[in-house]
Design a protein around this nucleic acid. Structure first.
Lengths: 333, 333
DNA sequence: TTTAATTTTGCAACCGGTTGCAAAATTTTC
DNA sequence: GAAAATTTTGCAACCGGTTGCAAAATTAAA
């Protein structure tokens, strides 16, 4: 059924190699030959088979897109941008959904079977070792939104989460909140741990500010709401909360509203991610944003450069986060 | 670098065919041989190359996942479920992001180059002809969330959008709203058109109920809010609105709240999709839900059955929608 | 115009598997 | 225990391209 290179060769009355060469750039083909072949190809509706070509060249132009964050709304944007950017480079994303599955070995094998040229691990919760398994298996990898190290073993692109924690703490202290708290997402996530560390590191500089912390069960509205309800019921409320995620914040806000507390006077909330919903007038959440587009562009750029030079030494690219001032924090006095 | 079948054959001291056979089920291999080969494979860490295998078998186990809906939060769930379900069947999703691009020819070619075994077009906005191009090119296709026809040319799984429109109209009339309106998403989407048709078809049975309609520029909070603001400013408000999507509804709700109107007494709103946010206590949107999980399971089932029998005649599978009663519509009197 | 240098083309082997066919090995039947 | 029936194995060709190498064709130099 499908047209092969040999079909084209026959119709054009040339050798298969000639056809192959007209479709690989950089190959030696005369103008006359190229025209002849292109005509035949057009007539027949031929387009080269990427898989067969991959057999000899060893490059599939397939990039594994690995993630376990299919619950977080921000990731729809991540997938959108990432797939578009990859497509723009002539690369095709092969999706691997690792929800509820963290075995790196399996993940690597699943991608290796398809000879992917590389893999982008987009996750703020998978540990660095996860990405390392890809590198160890010889699969070029970049970890987007991952935890960085000063002596990285794989490319990492993202933000400095502990700096984000410090930024949140600094902001709350500036706004004159006297007791502040960290309301994190799932404790196992590296991003949670890093922000936690940064947050309390900064607070240590302000001994007059009381602090506490707790963790929500998931990055979800319900988990945020439940945890805030628990805190309210327990009666040991802080003045201000740094939440691990906007959805969490919004859940917390809803519990706070139910309790009749006044935001931002009685209680401040600062979120993380600046997702779509944070901008909604009826939510209007003050939050910290990470430059998603830049992170992903940089990830793809790194990926592309690794395809040329697989032994490129691992690099860390961090982008600054930004405070997005809205209505859930007291203004600077 | 990577271990080939011949490496395994050499180490096990058997022929390549033997190795191939132990890895293809249904092939004739003795117990003794199988054990020998499996041991060698394990020792070497061999796993068969899906692409090479595809060359002779003609099956890649790659399924194109085509969509242009990377803005709608509901699609994160769609991607999550679809990829998991495909993976569970041993299939791998090759993502194709068609945002701002509707040329079916290109899309087909992009997938054909990778010899996908089939394609799932997940979109409520692409026209049936789009999916048809795949079928015409010999690529088994199922259109999830698509517009159905009584004499379908491709498999379609989804809901009867015009029935959804009727359901919305029926509900609003029941609740005793006297002037009702359709606040649709982008007019070009088939789902918008179908719901529009159903909505007014039902209203035609109730001549005492006044009606009107308009369309938002996008499926977004801002578009919904802007359109509702425009309506409020124009001063010709209806009693109740059927919005094309929950995000749109939420935007509209925010405009309504700003205007000091009382929901659900002065004004009723009914959304569509029952997304996560509709459940949030501070939104509490009455909406119509489509059974996403069933739709996708059915899509994958159809896909799998087509792989066995590519000439299976096209089928339409429609699932019922359900009214999710929350707080933005007057109760039944 | 002849010869040397350069470019274009085709041949054939290969990438990593699969599979039809016949030979070899095993099991069944008598 | 020999012959027939059945199962297992290996050989070799093939899937749809690519590529090193040498022959053929073209261009440049003499």
């Amino acid at each position: 059924m499908p047209i092969t290179l040999r079909d084209v060769a026959t119709r054009a009355g040339v050798s298969p190699s000639a056809v192959s060469r007209t479709f690989t750039d950089g190959a030696s083909v005369s103008e006359k030959m190229r025209r002849k072949v292109e005509k035949a190809a057009r007539d027949l509706g031929y387009s080269p088979n990427a898989l067969a070509s991959a057999m000899t060249t060893g490059r599939t132009k397939l990039i594994g897109l690995v993630s376990n964050n299919f619950q977080n709304p921000i990731f729809l944007q991540v997938f959108d941008l990432l797939t578009r950017k990859l497509q723009d480079c002539g690369l095709r994303p092969l999706l691997l959904n690792l929800t509820g599955e963290t075995d790196a070995k399996t993940a690597v094998r699943m991608l290796q079977q398809y000879s992917v040229d590389g893999a982008i691990v987009a996750s703020s919760t998978l540990p660095p070792e996860f990405s390392k398994s890809f590198r160890d298996a010889g699969v070029p990898v970049v970890n987007s939104f991952g935890r960085f190290s000063t002596s990285p073993e794989v490319h990492v692109v993202g933000v400095d989460n502990s700096e984000c924690g410090r930024m949140a703490a600094r902001t709350l202290v500036e706004r004159d909140y006297k007791t502040v708290a960290f309301l994190g997402g799932p404790e196992a996530a590296t991003s949670t741990q890093d922000r936690f560390r940064g947050f309390f590191q900064e607070l240590a500089k302000h001994p007059h500010v009381a602090h506490s912390h707790s963790f929500a069960a998931a990055y979800s509205f319900d988990a945020g709401r439940a945890e805030m309800q628990r805190l309210i019921a327990a009666g040991d409320m802080a003045d201000a909360y740094f939440c691990g995620d906007d959805v969490l914040s919004i859940g917390a806000l809803s519990a706070v509203a139910d309790a009749g507390l006044n935001v931002p006077q009685d209680l401040g909330i600062i979120g993380f991610n600046d997702m779509e919903m944070a901008r909604w007038e009826n939510i209007n959440l003050t939050t910290i944003s990470q430059p998603i587009d830049q992170i992903l562009q940089s990830s793809v750029d790194l990926m592309v450069s690794m395809l040329d030079d697989p032994d490129r030494s691992p690099e860390v690219r961090l982008f600054p986060c930004k405070l997005i001032e809205r209505g859930t924090l007291r203004p600077l006095s």
